[in-house]
């Protein structure tokens, strides 16, 4: 498994990563449809922090000793067997927010409805993370371990 990494000096704070993350995790996968029909259902799993002079995109670090997995009461948060990525099975998640309480990067977010959590899945299904693919300045890059 690899990791999404960020160069804070390169980040423009444009938030395109947030938008493409939303689209990649929408049902339609189409930017327009997604914003007209689904915007209340999905949460971006990447978050751009901006202090005014520097900005930086944060998403799940896929820890090898993940506090969110240790704290998950439902068994929803788990290591994907093949890659070791930290994933949340939203069918099992009960929204107790224990993971939100313990993630040191603040990278596990509440879904819009607040009932389940939402986090980076490295876009495992499609191969390349949408945030990396669409970062105009290569501030986000993907590196195999």
């Amino acid at each position: 498994m690899g990791h999404i990494k960020a160069r804070e000096n390169y980040c423009l704070g444009c938030k395109l990563c947030e938008i493409h993350c939303l689209v990649a995790h929408s049902r339609s996968k189409k930017i327009l449809k997604c914003f007209t029909n689904e915007k209340d259902e999905i949460t971006s799993r990447i978050l751009v922090e901006d202090t005014g002079h520097i900005s930086f995109a944060v998403q799940c670090r896929h820890c090898t000793e993940a506090p969110c997995i240790e704290s998950c009461i439902s068994g929803a948060m788990h290591y994907e067997q093949k890659t070791g990525a930290v994933l949340c099975d939203t069918n099992r998640c009960v929204g107790c927010l224990m993971c939100v309480m313990v993630c040191p990067a603040g990278a596990v977010l509440r879904s819009r409805k607040g009932t389940v959590v939402s986090k980076c899945d490295l876009c495992l299904e499609s191969g390349i993370p949408a945030c990396v693919e669409n970062c105009p300045n290569e501030a986000l890059y993907y590196e195999e371990d």
């Binding site: 990791h3 804070e8 978050l47 922090e49 901006d50 202090t51 000793e65 040191p104 603040g106």
Partner: peptide, 21 residues
């Protein structure tokens, strides 16, 4: 604005690299 960017630099590195990594 409080977030990972606010954290002291050394600790920020640790957080960004991931727990256990």
């Amino acid at each position: 604005e409080f977030g990972v960017l606010t954290l002291p630099k050394e600790y920020r590195k640790y957080v960004i690299s991931g727990v256990g990594i």
